[in-house]
């Protein structure tokens, strides 16, 4: 008997809760209804195209990625004004040699020899032909 009464009370309570809920649903404002409508249209658009909306932007995204890649490649090929590692190592070796100080004293002489070697090298091909 008590169980039956409880069930009736539960049922009445659920009915009252449902009524309140339905009233709150009916009273939704226009802005909210409009946003729901827009959401529904977006969902139906997915059905029409048969593919996700983001897929439609894939070609544009691909082009943008390719452009960025191209720019990165182009800037990467620009000559950079810096000492090459070989040159740095050569300089270091010169500094470590015992006679480096003597070389510094006769700097003019060594530069003259260097110029002379360059001039000989420039003349060499003509000599061979001649």
């Amino acid at each position: 008997m008590k169980e039956r009464k409880d069930m009736t009370a539960d049922s009445t309570f659920a009915g009252e809760a449902k009524q309140l809920f339905d009233e709150s649903v009916e009273g939704l404002d226009g802005q909210t209804r409009s946003r729901l409508n827009r959401g529904r249209q977006a969902a139906l658009e997915e059905l029409k195209t048969g593919r996700p909306v983001w897929v439609q932007w894939a070609p544009a995204a691909g082009l943008a990625a390719a452009a960025i890649f191209g720019v990165v490649l182009w800037t990467g090929n620009q000559p950079v004004d810096q000492l090459t590692p070989e040159a740095s190592v050569a300089d270091f070796e010169i500094l470590l040699t015992q006679d480096s100080f003597e070389m510094l004293e006769d700097l003019e002489f060594y530069s003259w020899i260097d110029l002379d070697e360059d001039a000989d090298a420039a003349l060499e091909p003509e000599d061979i032909v001649g």
Partner: peptide, 9 residues
């Protein structure tokens, strides 16, 4: 909206 889109998809 997410749920509607997923249902449609």
């Amino acid at each position: 909206q997410d749920a509607m889109i997923k249902l449609a998809r």
